[in-house]
Design a protein around this nucleic acid. Structure first.
Lengths: 234, 234, 234, 234
DNA sequence: AATGAATGAGCCTTCATTCAT
DNA sequence: GATGAATGAAGGCTCATTCAT
C-alpha cells in the first residue's frame, strides 16, 4: 500500500544519501522549488525564479535534477513522505470509523487554517488538477489512489457495503467533496464570505458541520443496511 | 440580482450585435479561445495557438480584441450568457425549494455528462482559482457572487435561517462541495473509478444521491428549527 | 528662388484643389499629421496615432496619401508655404542689413516663446536632422538651402565679402548657431536654467544679445574690410 | 563637480572590471550598441540589429544587460568615461580663461574632424534631445549639467560676472551655440557647403574663427565691466 | 561540485499595408 | 468617398537548456 518511490530521471548527478540536507545547494533548491511550484504550478513556475530565490546559479537546477521536470519529480517525492504518510496513518489507526472520519476531516481542514504551515502540498495538487503536468498520472497513482482506496474502505465498513460498491463511492465522494470545497475554493470563499477568518475555532466548527452533515445520511444508510441484512438473514 | 455584463476593454472595435456569428473570423476566434483557455488557463494559453487553430492570422486577435486579456474578457462575457444565466433562471423560478435544489444539482452535473461540450465554462473557473488572471476579481464579482448569494437564499429559506447565518452558509457549502467534486476532479475520478462512464443515467443517479445525501441533514435541521420556533413562539 | 513643389507620390486619389479644406477627412489628417510628425519625427510617428487623433479610419492615410511617406511629403509641402516663405520675405525686404539681421533673429526666436503656435515646423526639422527620413534631401534642397543661400548673401553684403567666401560662411554659421541653440536644445535649457521662462520679454532680451554679440565681430570685420579696400583702391 | 557614475540597472550580472574587453561578447555588444544607438537613437535602434552586428544571439543582450534600456544605460556610462571626462579635464586646468576657451572649442570640434570615429557620443545626445529616452533626465543630470555649470563659471570669470547672471548665461550660450552648429548640423553642412572637408586644418580655422568671433564681444564686455567696477569702487 | 556564458524557440504586441466592399 | 477586416514582418522580452571551464 505504500507509495512507490518516484524514479530518478535525467540528472547528471546521482542523488547522494544526504542530498536534501538543509544547508546544501541541492537542499535549498528543493525547498524553494516546493514553494514556487505550489504558488504557480508546474507550468507557470520558472527555474529562474527557483534558482534566484535559492541564491543558486540558474544552471544548478539542470545540474542537480537534469531538468525542470526532474526537479518537480523530486518535489513530488518529498510530498509523499511529508503529507501522504501522516494522513495514511490516520486512516490506518484502529478506532471506530466514526472517529476516524472526524479525524480525517479535521486533519484535512487544519492544513488551510491561516497561520499554519504554508500547505504547499495542497496547492500543488490544485495546480495539478487545473493543469496536469507530465507527472500527473504518477501523482494520481502514488498519492491520490492509495488515499482514495483507503477512504473507500473506511466508508464501506461504516455503511456495511463493499468498498467498490457504487453507493459506497458516492458516499465517499460526498464527504470528500465537502472538504475539497474549502481546499480548492479557499481564495474565492475568503472574498465571498467576509466572516470566514479561518481561525482554529472556526475551522473546528466547519469540520464538525461536515461530520454532522455527512453522518445524518450515513447513519440512515447504515440502519437501512442492517435492516436489509437482518431481513435477508436467517 | 442579474449579473452585470462584463465591460468592454481595449478592443479597437466595438462588438457588433452579430459579431460572434460562427462564420466570421471574430466568431471563430472567440470559439477557439474558449476552448484553449479552458484547456490551458489564461496564463498558459497562447494567442498563437488560438489564432492557428482558428485559421486566422496572429494579429487578428489584437485587431478584434485589443490584446490577450481583451479576448479573455470577451470569452468570460459569453460565459455568463451561456452558463450563468440559465443556472440563474433555475434558481429564480417559483417552485418548492426541494425541487429547485434537485434541479440545480442536475443542471450543474449535466454539463459534464457526455463528452460533447467538455464543459469549458467550469474548466476556466478552475484555472482561475488555481492561477488567477487579472480578471479574477471580476469573475468573482459578476459570476460567482450572484450565484452564491442566490443559492444562500434558497438554502436559508429551506432550513428556516437567514441567508448569511453561518449554518446556512455551511449547509450551502456542503451541497455545492458535493457537486464541485465531480466538476473539478472529473479527470481524476475517471482514472480512479473505472466504472464512471458519465452516461446520462449514471449522472442522474449521482444527482439523486447528492440530493438524498443533503436532504437527510437539511430536513433534520428544518425540523429542529421549527421546534425551536414553536417553543419560543407564543 | 522659390522652392519647388514637392511632387505627388503614390496616392490612389489625386489631390483635388480644395483637398486641404479644414473640414474634410483629408484636411484633418494633414493637420494631425503635422502635429504628430513634429512630436515624434517621421520614424517614430505612427499612422495609427495620426488616424486615431483625426477620428479617421486607419486605412484613410493610405487611401489619401498612398503611404506614410506620401503623407509626410504632403506635410513637408505645407511646411514650405507656412514657414519658409514668411522668413524668405523678411530676408528679401529692402532694409539696412543690420536691421534685417535683427529681424531674422527675432522672427526665428519668437517661434519658441511658449504660448505661441506649436511651432511644429521647427520640431520636424530637428527630428529630420537627428534621424533623416527618406525625404531628407528634399527638405535640404527646398527648405534649408534657399534660406541658407539668402542668409549668406545678407552676411556677405554686411561684411563686404562674396557670399561663398569661407569667412562669410563662418560668420553666418556663428549667427545661425547661436539661434539654433535655443531651438534645438530648448528642452535641455529649460531643465538646466530655471530662470528661462521664454516670456516675450526674455526672448526679446535673448534676441538682442545675439544681435549685439554678433555685431561686435561683424562690424570689426566690416571696418577692416573697408580699410583693406581703401588701401588697395585708388 | 565630477559627474556621478550612472547606476547599474536590471542586468542580471554585475559588470566585471575587464568586462568591456574587446574580445568578449559583452564588450562587442557594447561597442556595437554605441554605434547603433548613435545611428538610430534609443527608440529606433533594435536589439536585433545590435545582436546581429555583434555576431551574438539576441538573448545575449538580455543576459548581459537585462534589457534594451540596461544596455543603453551602459553605453551612456561609457560615454562619460570616453568623452565627458576629457572635456572636464580641459575645463578644470589652471590656465588663462582665454586659453581654456580656445582649447574647449578645439577639443569639441576635433571630435568631428576626420571620418574616423563618427562621433557617436554627440549623435546620441542629438537623438536624446530630438526624442528623449527614459534616461534623458539622467543624461542631463550627469553629463550636460556638470559641463554646463563649469562652462558658466569659466565664462563668468572671463567677463567678471557671477556664473548665474543672465548675461553670463547668454554669452556662454553664444559660444556653445556656434560649436553645436557644426556638431548637430554636420550632415546638412556637408551637403550645403561643398568645400567643407573637415580636414584638421579647416577645423582649426573654424575653431579660430569661433574664438575670434566670441572674444570680440566678450572682451568688450570685460572692459565695460572693469570700468563699471572702477567707477563704483573706491 | 558548480557556474558564467550563450543559445534557439517561443511569447505578446505593434507596425504599415492591402483588399474587398 | 471611404472603411472594416485581415495580414506578414518585426519589435522587445523570457524561457529551459547546454556547454566549456
Amino acid at each position: 500500500m505504500k507509495p512507490q518511490i518516484l524514479q530518478e530521471r535525467r540528472s547528471r548527478k546521482p542523488r547522494a544519501g544526504h542530498a536534501s540536507a538543509a544547508g546544501s545547494t541541492r537542499g535549498k533548491l528543493l525547498e524553494t522549488a516546493a514553494q514556487v511550484f505550489s504558488e504557480r504550478g508546474y507550468h507557470a513556475a520558472t527555474v529562474r525564479e527557483i534558482a534566484k530565490r535559492s541564491g543558486a546559479n540558474i544552471a544548478a537546477v539542470n545540474y542537480h535534477f537534469g531538468d525542470k521536470l526532474g526537479l518537480y519529480s523530486e518535489v513530488l517525492h518529498h510530498m509523499i513522505a511529508a503529507r501522504v504518510e501522516p494522513l495514511q496513518a490516520v486512516l490506518e489507526q484502529n478506532a471506530p470509523p466514526e472517529e476516524i472520519l472526524r479525524q480525517v476531516i479535521k486533519t484535512r481542514l487544519q492544513g488551510i487554517s491561516t497561520g499554519a504551515l504554508p500547505d504547499w502540498h495542497l496547492r500543488i495538487m490544485i495546480h495539478e488538477f487545473a493543469q496536469p503536468s507530465p507527472l500527473m498520472s504518477r501523482v494520481v497513482k502514488e498519492i491520490s489512489r492509495p488515499l482514495y482506496m483507503r477512504f473507500l474502505e473506511l466508508t464501506g465498513k461504516f455503511i456495511g457495503l463493499p468498498p467498490d460498491d457504487e453507493t459506497t463511492r458516492l458516499c465517499a465522494h460526498s464527504v470528500v467533496g465537502q472538504i475539497l470545497l474549502y481546499v480548492t475554493q479557499a481564495p474565492l470563499l475568503l472574498q465571498i464570505w467576509p466572516d470566514l477568518k479561518m481561525t482554529p475555532e472556526q475551522v473546528d466548527r466547519i469540520a464538525d458541520h461536515i461530520v454532522n452533515f455527512s453522518l445524518a445520511y450515513l447513519r440512515e444508510l447504515r440502519a437501512n443496511q442492517r435492516t436489509v441484512r437482518n431481513k435477508s438473514g436467517p
